[in-house]
């Protein structure tokens, strides 16, 4: 069974399609990412899955529970951290967790045990009796994760879990996501950050303007989106870009400060030619780096392609 199954899900606001007939499934045990720029429909999709927003068309199920007909069951099988959410700042970390546990009908002793475990794991146990008001953004996000995990859910849904966090909190949260996943939790997360997606996700759906334009492993998307490699080179003196574009196999040349970026078909032929070029013109090569095509390149290509249609 798929942990999340989505068929033709659609949401309109007025005449505007925020989410437009999207279909995908998240396999049990994987980390699945929803990658797209702001306003592409990621949160709207999540809000349909969590039952806040009613879809206009299509269906979806979480752990086999229909999100509309069996919304309460579906919600019971997820842990959720909304985008830019907050815990109750007037309450202590502990009380926030007890309240959440209550909402899931978890008996007191069980609630307390889980809350202690979670707070320890997220480095908040010492601060459990402090009001959340005094917590940093990273601490709040960690507490929200604790709150999402209090019902021991099989599926974790995270809307932009690392956006706006400091490096350390972001890294900790990513580590925890991986750790939870290793222990069997299915994770569905959204992000507009390509690095996060490729670091965390086994599969990524790229969404733009409410439409899914590709679903694949980040590495496969890299390869499919672009066969081009990139060479970054800097010479001992400045050179004419146009001359470089005459080198065999070079498709495109861009200037970045004192570096030149060459997009090439054949990396071996290109490097040999660059070396020859430098020797003929009596220049030194100061640096030469080869870059695999980044997910960003692919993303820009894919989204521009659909944007132009």
């Amino acid at each position: 069974m798929d942990a999340i199954q989505v068929n033709d899900l659609t949401k309109r606001y007025g005449g505007f399609k925020a989410v437009d007939h999207i279909s995908f499934s998240v396999v049990e045990g994987e980390i699945f990412g929803f990658l797209g720029p702001n306003g592409s429909g990621k949160s709207t999709t999540i809000r349909m899955l969590t039952g806040i927003v009613k879809p206009d068309e299509g269906t979806a199920a979480i752990m086999g529970h229909d999100i509309v007909k069996d919304s309460i069951r579906a919600r019971e099988s997820i842990g959720f951290v909304p985008e830019m959410a907050n815990a109750y700042v007037e309450l202590t970390a502990w009380r926030n967790l007890m309240f959440m546990g209550d909402l899931y009908g978890i008996p007191r002793s069980e609630r307390e045990r889980r809350a202690s475990d979670l707070l320890k794991r997220f480095g908040l146990y010492e601060r459990r009796d402090n009001q959340v008001r005094g917590f940093s953004k990273g601490m709040r996000q960690r507490l929200l994760l604790c709150m999402a995990l209090i019902n021991d859910p099989p599926v974790l849904i995270l809307d932009e879990p690392t956006s706006g966090l400091d490096v350390e909190s972001s890294r900790l949260i990513k580590e925890v996501i991986r750790e939870l996943n290793r222990a069997g939790t299915t994770v569905f997360l959204t992000t507009h950050n390509i690095e996060d997606a490729s670091q965390l996700c086994e599969r990524v759906a790229i969404i733009n303007r409410g439409v899914i334009i590709a679903v694949d492993r980040p590495e496969a998307l890299r390869q499919a989106g672009s066969a081009l490699y990139c060479i970054e080179v800097s010479f001992s003196r400045s050179v004419d870009e146009r001359e470089l574009s005459d080198i065999p196999s070079v498709r495109e040349v861009m200037k970045f400060g004192d570096k030149l970026r060459l997009y090439v078909d054949d990396i071996d032929m290109a490097i040999t030619s660059i070396v020859d070029y430098a020797r003929i013109h009596n220049m030194k090569i100061l640096a030469l780096t080869t870059l695999a095509p980044s997910l960003e390149d692919i993303f820009v290509r894919l989204t521009h392609k659909t944007g132009a249609e």
Binding site: G51, R73, P82, N86
Partner: peptide, 14 residues
């Protein structure tokens, strides 16, 4: 306003 509502209404509570 304080962004606690989304978490609250996505709990299994009618």
């Amino acid at each position: 306003r304080s962004r606690t509502l989304e978490r609250l209404v996505t709990a299994p509570v009618e």
